[in-house]
């Protein structure tokens, strides 16, 4: 897991879910365990996109189940952006 991205994601998620950061697990199902719904998911991902200055493709978003998935996706998109030298926003 990317050690720069993960803490940021943890903080955003704890804010969105109104949880203490210590209570956030990266490997549990966001929808089943944390009760995330579509609105909260959209909110979470909007904050993630803004924080990392990226856009997460809708097709990839549909495959996300855990915060580990989110971290991996952000890592992948960031690397791709750097390689392509573009800002997605």
């Amino acid at each position: 897991m990317n050690s720069e991205i993960a803490p940021v994601i943890r903080n955003i998620f704890s804010r969105v879910q109104k949880l203490s950061p210590e209570d956030v697990s990266f490997d549990v199902d966001l929808f089943a365990v944390y009760g995330l719904d579509s609105l909260k998911a959209a909110k979470l991902l909007s904050h993630v996109e803004v924080e990392f200055d990226i856009l997460l493709p809708d097709d990839d978003i549909r495959t996300l189940h855990t915060l580990n998935d989110v971290v991996a996706l952000v890592d992948r998109i960031k690397k791709r952006s750097q390689q392509e030298g573009i800002c997605h926003v």
């Binding site: 959209a42 909110k43 909007s46 904050h47 996109e49 803004v50 924080e51």
Partner: peptide, 13 residues
């Protein structure tokens, strides 16, 4: 609505 979400996130940041 998706643009609104993005703008709120920008404002909060």
């Amino acid at each position: 609505f998706p643009k609104l979400m993005h703008m709120i996130a920008l404002a909060r940041k």
